[in-house]
Design a protein around this nucleic acid. Structure first.
Lengths: 191, 191
DNA sequence: ACCTGAACACCGTTCAAGT
DNA sequence: ACCTGAACACCGTTCAAGT
């Protein structure tokens, strides 16, 4: 590695592109704006990534990799299964705190029809990683029957994505908290 | 009224624009494509709607009005509170059946940052109408405490939107059904 | 390797001119 | 009233040419 992480152009482009895509989606990710953000010309972006599709796929790949690392760290940091499930929604809350952004996976889920296949694949990996982690946590907590953990994990993931989306469309992060509290009160998540 | 509903140009434009927006969003709604869909030239769209923002606001307005009428009809057709709550997710299922489209409100919720204010307002009305209806149904069913109905109604709406989004990103309508079943098993919706 | 000007195809929008 | 071709200023994207 020549440079520390985040200091070379490709890293800067990926970081800026992620921020833009979380607020404006794939369609709203403008190469000209992105280039200006990074401090180069639009055409120069294509020196680092062969196309917008490749760039977006790289963004989505790094996105789920970072998410996996974060979940792994949380797993090691806490040792209470209920604490894992308590903490989990916070990663989605962070996006809203970050200027009302949402999960890349949610935005691109909406844009699904217009996504290049490689981007679709990486986006699905994000959901897979999250659902798998939730399944592990649910199993450890012994909250639902073994043959129901996978289904429940998916339901929790979908419901949290929906809560994030609704909170964004009201620009109201307290709505996100209230929705999560309702999920807990209803029994979808442990109280 | 000169023509039956849906036969004049403005109606055809609104219907086509709605379909496009449910698949590609506000940003993905191209006036040129829309015009071709309707069989006129792009410039002619502006004879019926002064701007894209006005068109989108009209689309969103009609969308929640249609939704309100549909919910009203369902209310009158069935007389069992539990049947209302059973039937409700079907309206969202219909969008997915219709070539993997999603609720206009969900897509534009993601695009929130890029929406003209009049469009934002109409989109919020859709959520308001749906949450209010769900609240009425929950009250009638006496499923949750009176001071919890509003919160629960919002939670159900958000969770269903999330399920629809996740199902779209997998192009898998059976996933939508499975998620709804999990919500019921978990206690978010009546079984 | 890294960057760029210029070109291309597209977009929302306008307008004068048609029926 | 309703429609249109042509034009405008713009933008994402590409590519050949620079250093």
């Amino acid at each position: 590695m020549k440079n520390p992480a985040g200091t070379n152009s490709a890293d800067k482009i990926l970081a800026a592109a992620t921020r833009i895509a979380q607020a404006h989606g794939y369609g709203g990710l403008s190469i000209r704006d992105l280039a200006e953000d990074v401090g180069i010309k639009a055409a120069s972006i294509y020196h680092h990534f062969p196309s917008k599709a490749d760039l977006a796929a790289a963004v989505a790949k790094r996105y789920w990799e970072d998410s996996a690392a974060l979940l792994e760290a949380m797993w090691k940091e806490l040792n209470d299964p209920l604490a894992w499930l308590r903490q989990y929604p916070n990663t989605f809350r962070k996006s809203l705190e970050n200027e009302n952004r949402i999960c890349l996976c949610s935005f691109m889920g909406a844009e699904y029809d217009d996504l290049p296949q490689p981007v679709k694949d990486e986006i699905q990996r994000f959901a897979d990683v999250n659902v798998a982690w939730l399944g592990k946590a649910l199993s450890a907590a012994s909250l639902v029957d073994a043959d129901e953990t996978e289904r429940r994990a998916r339901a929790i993931f979908a419901a949290i994505a929906g809560a994030q989306l609704m909170a964004r469309s009201r620009s109201d992060i307290t709505l996100y908290d209230a929705l999560l509290e309702s999920y807990r009160a209803a029994g979808l998540l442990p109280a």
